[in-house]
Every structure is written in structure tokens, then in C-alpha cells.
């Protein structure tokens, strides 16, 4: 039941997108977000969405998984859309009812905002679907390394992130087990008022925290026993290297960026 939750789930594969250096993907995601915010006309929006669709097609990730991932954000999208619909002023009045004024500009803006939202979410999902969490932390560590000069413990932060990601499935499994055990003692999580339901969580949370602390303690001991020392002087088994594929990915994305800027300048 709890295992069905997708938390930036990684779909293993061997598509060109999968094979890109994780740093490339991370940087290009940022570039893509810039492209999205540069775009302003119908043609430039088509370019943005088309580019994203092409990337998704190349990655061979089933489009359904993107829809599934978007579900929890539907409310936010609708909210953004409605806010833009009602509160954008303009010249062409479409509907006038009591204090509600809907202008054509508002409709267009709402559609653009929702499209931008969808593209943003899909692009982020494309990154997490095609990149394993470990690769992602590696990339982050590598990209943030310059900040290490300012005294930021980059390696330690990346390690913490890595461990946190690693333990999500373990803790979910543990939660499942504890829930079953408490249900066997008649605990009821499904009925009752809100306060009762919150109270019903105590028998799950207490054992869960205790086991999480125990695991953390054991892991720390195990790391100490192996004389783990992060940061300085530590080498990696898998070195990140930019390749030809990354160069072409950069070229294509920058071309889309240039195109988007050009289209916006011409007002398309």
C-alpha cells in the first residue's frame, strides 16, 4: 500500500537521456526552466513543449508515469489557473458578472501559466526518472564543489542526502510492518474524527522514530568501524565525465534557448 508512492522514482533504462552525465541533466534542467520563463508567445510555447515532448519520447519513459506524478499537484495548478483567470486585467471583456470580470488576456495567461507549470513538473520528473538518486547526489556534490572553498561541507551534505534517499524505502517498509502489527492489536487508522486519527498515529510514529534512531546509530557505528572519512582526499569509483553526448545535449538545449529568445523578441 505504502510502496505505491512514487518519490521521484528512478526508472532504470539505457536511453540517451539515461546515459547523459547527471551534471549535464541538472544544468540543462535549470536552462530549460529559464527557457520556459523566457517564452511568451504561442510559437515559443510550442517550441518549449515540443522540445520537452521530444526528450520524453527519447527517454522511453511511459508518459503515463508523468501523469501519475502530477496528480498531487492538480490542486495547485487549478489554483494558479483560477487566480490568473480572475485577476488579470485587459481590454477584451469576455464575462461580466457581479464582481467577476474575465478578460481574454486573463484566459490566455491562465492557459500559459498552467502549461508552464506542467512543463516544469514534467521536466523535473524527467530528471528524477532517468537519473538514479546516487548519480544525482554525485552531480550535486560535483556542481557545488566551488562552494567548498567558502567553507560549506559539500561532501557531507551530499552524503547526508544520499543516506536519506537510501533509507526512504526501508522506512516505508518498516512503517508498513508496524502498521500491520498495531492493526493486529486492533488499532484503527481509518475511522474516527481528525483528532482521533492523529492520535492513532502515535503507536506508529513512536516505534518508527525509535527504529530510525537505532538504524542511524548502527550506520554511524558501521561507518566509523570502516574508518569512513568524507571530503578531503576521497576518490570515487565512478568518475563523472562529460562526453560527446553531453556536448550535443548542451548544443540542442542552447539552440532551443536561442530560438525561444528570438521568438520572444519578435513577439511570437
Amino acid at each position: 500500500m505504502l510502496k505505491d508512492i512514487t518519490l521521484g522514482q528512478y526508472f532504470p533504462g539505457n536511453s540517451p537521456i539515461h546515459r547523459l552525465d547527471p551534471r549535464t541533466k541538472l544544468i540543462l534542467l535549470v536552462v530549460y526552466i529559464v527557457i520556459l520563463f523566457v517564452a511568451s508567445g504561442p510559437v515559443s510555447y510550442c517550441l518549449c513543449l515540443g522540445f520537452l515532448a521530444a526528450c520524453i519520447a527519447v527517454s522511453k519513459i511511459p508518459p503515463k508515469s508523468f501523469l501519475r506524478g502530477m496528480k498531487p499537484l492538480i490542486f495547485l495548478m487549478c489554483f494558479t489557473g483560477i487566480m490568473n483567470l480572475f485577476f488579470t486585467g485587459g481590454e477584451t471583456l469576455l464575462v461580466k458578472f457581479w464582481i467577476i470580470h474575465i478578460y481574454l488576456e486573463g484566459v490566455i495567461r491562465a492557459v500559459y501559466m498552467i502549461l508552464r507549470f506542467i512543463a516544469l513538473i514534467c521536466a523535473t520528473f524527467l530528471l528524477t526518472y532517468t537519473t538514479s538518486p546516487i548519480a544525482l547526489t554525485d552531480a550535486l556534490e560535483s556542481l557545488l564543489r566551488p562552494l567548498g572553498k567558502l567553507g560549506l561541507p559539500v561532501h557531507e551534505l551530499a552524503m547526508m542526502m544520499c543516506i536519506a534517499l537510501r533509507f526512504i524505502p526501508t522506512l516505508l517498509e518498516e512503517t508498513d510492518k508496524i502498521m500491520s502489527a498495531q492493526k493486529a492489536r486492533g488499532a484503527d487508522f481509518e475511522t474516527g474524527s481528525l483528532i482521533q486519527r492523529v492520535k492513532a498515529l502515535i503507536p506508529i510514529l513512536v516505534p518508527l522514530f525509535i527504529s530510525a534512531f537505532r538504524r542511524a546509530d548502527e550506520l554511524a557505528t558501521a561507518m566509523e568501524c570502516r574508518c569512513y572519512q568524507g571530503g578531503e582526499g576521497r576518490t570515487k569509483m565512478k568518475q563523472l565525465r562529460y562526453g560527446r553526448l553531453d556536448a550535443s545535449a548542451f548544443a540542442v538545449t542552447l539552440a532551443v534557448l536561442a530560438g525561444s529568445i528570438a521568438l520572444t523578441v519578435f513577439g511570437l
Partner: peptide
């Protein structure tokens, strides 16, 4: 079904992890 939870008592593996 709920009644069955009480009539059939199930002690899980490592039940001490459910103490709270």
C-alpha cells in the same frame, strides 16, 4: 473482520519493535 483481529491474536516477528 475487526472482531477477528481480537479473536485471532497475531504476534509478529520481532514484536518488541511495536512497543510504544
Amino acid at each position: 473482520t475487526r472482531e477477528c483481529r481480537f479473536r485471532v491474536g497475531l504476534v509478529f516477528q520481532y514484536p518488541e519493535y511495536q512497543l510504544f
